[in-house]
């Protein structure tokens, strides 16, 4: 059953080195089975550019940052006060990939640049800095993408008036394995303008 006054206005799904925006394929890496770093650089070149901080991010942050960049293309957020925009994300591997890389450096000289990415919610920080989001945020770690929970949490924030727009979803990365499934949920319809329900969110994920 859909929840009145809450809409899924955009989606971005990244898996197997290809990207769907609002259920339409918008990008596939020209080199099949490319290195994840190269694939993410391809997304940056195609959808963004001119954001040097991107190159310093770990793979998890790059994936979430790029997914948000694509999600919010043609969906300006500057009508919202920074405090009215939230980010709710989840994944299974936390920041384990970067944790391992950091641990490898500790044997000699611990890397400050890696250390700052040894938490999964840093990706939320990178997204928030880029888009000037200052509202509610949370990062959950769970074995699988629990769509009713994550989107339901976002819907609750919208329903309670805590925020007016939420970027929410799943951002998973460990070694080459990766998947991002992002939703833009808002109280006003635009874009896809699908009335929110967990069932709709699940259909969009498939």
């Amino acid at each position: 059953m859909s929840q009145q006054g809450i809409y899924i206005n955009a989606t971005c799904i990244i898996r197997h080195q290809s990207v769907d925006k609002n259920r339409q394929p918008v990008y596939a890496h020209e080199v099949p089975q490319a290195d994840l770093q190269d694939f993410l650089r391809g997304l940056y070149d195609r959808f963004s550019g001119q954001y040097p901080k991107f190159h310093k991010m770990d793979l998890l942050s790059k994936l979430g940052w790029a997914a948000t960049e694509i999600l919010l293309q043609d969906m300006p957020m500057d009508q919202y006060a920074p405090e009215d925009t939230g980010v709710i994300l989840a994944n299974a591997s936390s920041s384990l990939d970067t944790d391992e890389k950091y641990f490898d450096t500790v044997q000699e000289i611990a890397s400050p640049a890696l250390f700052v990415y040894t938490l999964p919610n840093i990706v939320i920080g990178e997204i928030s800095i880029r888009h000037k989001f200052k509202g509610e945020n949370a990062f959950f770690v769970a074995e699988q993408f629990d769509i009713p929970f994550v989107t339901g949490y976002a819907a609750q924030l919208l329903e309670s008036g805590a925020v007016k727009a939420v970027v929410c979803g799943w951002v998973e990365q460990y070694h080459a394995s990766h998947e991002a499934a992002f939703y833009l949920m808002e109280t006003a319809p635009r874009g896809m303008a699908l009335p929110f329900s967990a069932e709709t969110a699940e259909k969009l994920y498939r």
Binding site: P52, P112, A113
Partner: peptide, 17 residues
């Protein structure tokens, strides 16, 4: 060049390495 505080730490590591 627009470097930040984390970059400053990396520069210290660079001098060592």
């Amino acid at each position: 060049l627009g470097l930040d505080s984390i970059d400053a730490l990396e520069l210290i590591v660079l001098l060592q390495q």
